[in-house]
Amino acid sequence: MITTSHYLVLSAILFTIGVIGVLVKRNPIVIFMCVELMLNAANLSFIALGRHFGQVNGQMYVIFALAVAAAEVSVGLGIIVAIFRSKETINVDEVNLMKS
C-alpha cells in the first residue's frame, strides 16, 4: 500500500539531491537544473497532499509553479548567455565582478 507519506519522503529525497547539487556544482547551468529538480520535488509533494485531502488546490499550485519555472528559466538562461558573451566563462567561481 502506497500512502501519501511515501510520496512525501520521496519528494524530500529528491529535494535534498537538488540542494546537494546546488552546493557542489560549479556550472551555473547545472545549478539551474538542480533548482528545477527542487521545484519538481516540491510540486510532487503538492500533488500528493492535494490528493490526500481530496482537493484540487495542490494541482493549482503546481500549474503556477510550472509557469514560474518557465519564466525563471528563460530569463536565467538569457543571463547566462549574456555573462558568457562578456566574460568567455560561466564558472560561478570566476564570475565575481561584484566582489571588491
Binding site: A67, A70, A82
Partner: peptide, 14 residues
C-alpha cells in the same frame, strides 16, 4: 503578465 515580462526580459538579456 509574469510570462510576458519574462519573454521580454529574456530577449533583452540575450
Amino acid at each position: 503578465i509574469l510570462l510576458l515580462v519574462a519573454v521580454i526580459g529574456a530577449i533583452i538579456m540575450a
